[in-house]
Amino acid sequence: MPNDPGFAPHALCAETAEAALSGLTASPKTLPAKLFYDPEGCRLFYRITELPEYYLTRTETGLLRTLGRSLIPEGFHSATLVEFGGSDEAKARYLLDQRDDHRRRLFATYVPIDVAASALEDMRFRLANSHPDLAVEPIVADFVGKLALPPLGRQRMGLFPGSTIGNLDPDVAVRFLASAREALGPGSWFLLGADLRKDPAILLPAYNDSAGVTAAFNLNLLCRLNREAAADFDLRHFRHAAVWNDALSRIEMHLIASRDQVVHVAGSVIPFAEGESIHTENSYKWTRRALVAMVAAAGWEPHRIWTDSEDLFGIFLLRHA
């Protein structure tokens, strides 16, 4: 049994084990990005967003702070904001804090959807204190797929910030946007954040920071499998790698085996050759034209686009066509 901090076996979680085995027995090996977000993964990701190399969060946050009320369609009042993948209210607050000329909230209800149940509960507690007049209705679910939403009222807006759309393969992104459109219903709006295609010299450091936080975030996947999927990964024999795939316009994150080895996961034997990769995440970078074509394929109508002065990041306001 490996003697390292990454190995701490606990009770088997069938869902985690099934997701892990599905990817690790494929060729090439993969792991689903949703497994990143256990409590430690959430903590590490929040650290990533504060790193100097990680331009995405500060650029998008700057846009949200500057644009504020202008992001919300005219006439909104007591509306519902549905955030897909919302385990932290930091970005949603730029919308939730907006009020009309009579000091009434433009959004009266907030529905965050995420797989991280503990993060959602923490957020509900924070908002109960900071926004006591806001109805908060968290949903613990994987936002990719058909969703059953509570009654949303007449005015509805979806929110998908952080360039999470880039973590979905393009066909999955179209299906997600179409599913969100169906769930939100006719007359709804959607605010989408997307990282724009740019020089890899800017992109790569954002996924391979000098402090090693992104590497720890990636390797934490293996810690989670050790804990929840009866695995025995030795983290000393895997390393983080981030590469730019120009043909597919995406950053790829991998965990690379540093030697030949055998790992056990939920009773199955998983062999690794030296240099073999587990592909853990993609982050697609979009041109405006490609993203507009994608949202149109999902049935949304692009209404307005905002970008920062350096054209690093875009916020797209869509309406139900």
Rank of each mutant, 00 (worst) to 15 (best):
G158Q: 06
H303G: 10
D311K: 06
S130W: 02
V136S: 08
H303C: 03
E89R: 15
F84R: 07
L203N: 04
D101T: 00
E301W: 07
E121I: 10
P151H: 04
E274C: 11
P5E: 05
N129W: 07
R69V: 14
T80N: 15
F84S: 03
L191I: 09
P112N: 10
G299R: 10
D4G: 12
P271Q: 03
A148V: 14
Q98H: 00
V243D: 12
S179K: 15
V262L: 15
L191A: 09
H320D: 14
H237K: 01
R104T: 07
K146Y: 04
H254R: 15
F160E: 09
L81A: 11
R224I: 04
Y55G: 00
P52I: 00
L31G: 15
L12P: 07
T307I: 09
A293D: 07
N218R: 04
I48F: 01
H131G: 05
R288P: 13
D101M: 12
S309D: 14
S78A: 12
A273Y: 06
P52R: 01
P200Q: 13
A33Y: 08
I315A: 08
L196N: 02
E50I: 00
L168K: 10
A14C: 07
G162N: 05
E121T: 10
I72P: 00
T61N: 00
V263E: 14
G6D: 15
G86C: 05
A128C: 08
L291D: 10
A90Q: 05
N208V: 02
Y37R: 06
T25M: 14
M157T: 10
S210Q: 15
Y54K: 08
L71P: 00
L81P: 14
H131M: 11
R250V: 03
F107P: 06
G314H: 01
R250K: 09
L56R: 03
I256L: 11
L318F: 06
E281L: 00
A17F: 10
T61R: 04
L235H: 05
R175E: 14
S118M: 12
D308M: 03
P112T: 11
G187V: 06
G212F: 13
S258W: 05
H10K: 15
L196I: 01
E89S: 13
P112A: 13
A296N: 08
I315S: 05
E137P: 02
R250M: 06
S78H: 14
G85D: 02
Q98C: 02
A298D: 03
L235V: 09
A215V: 15
D199S: 14
A116F: 03
W306I: 14
A293R: 12
A26V: 01
E18Y: 05
V115P: 09
S163K: 11
K146M: 10
H279S: 03
R236M: 08
R124C: 00
D171W: 03
E83N: 05
D311R: 13
F7L: 15
G62K: 04
V172S: 08
D308T: 07
F160Y: 13
R288F: 12
H254A: 15
A141F: 07
R103G: 11
D142I: 02
P132C: 08
Y54G: 02
D169G: 11
E53C: 01
L184K: 01
D38E: 09
P32K: 04
I270S: 02
A17Q: 06
R126T: 02
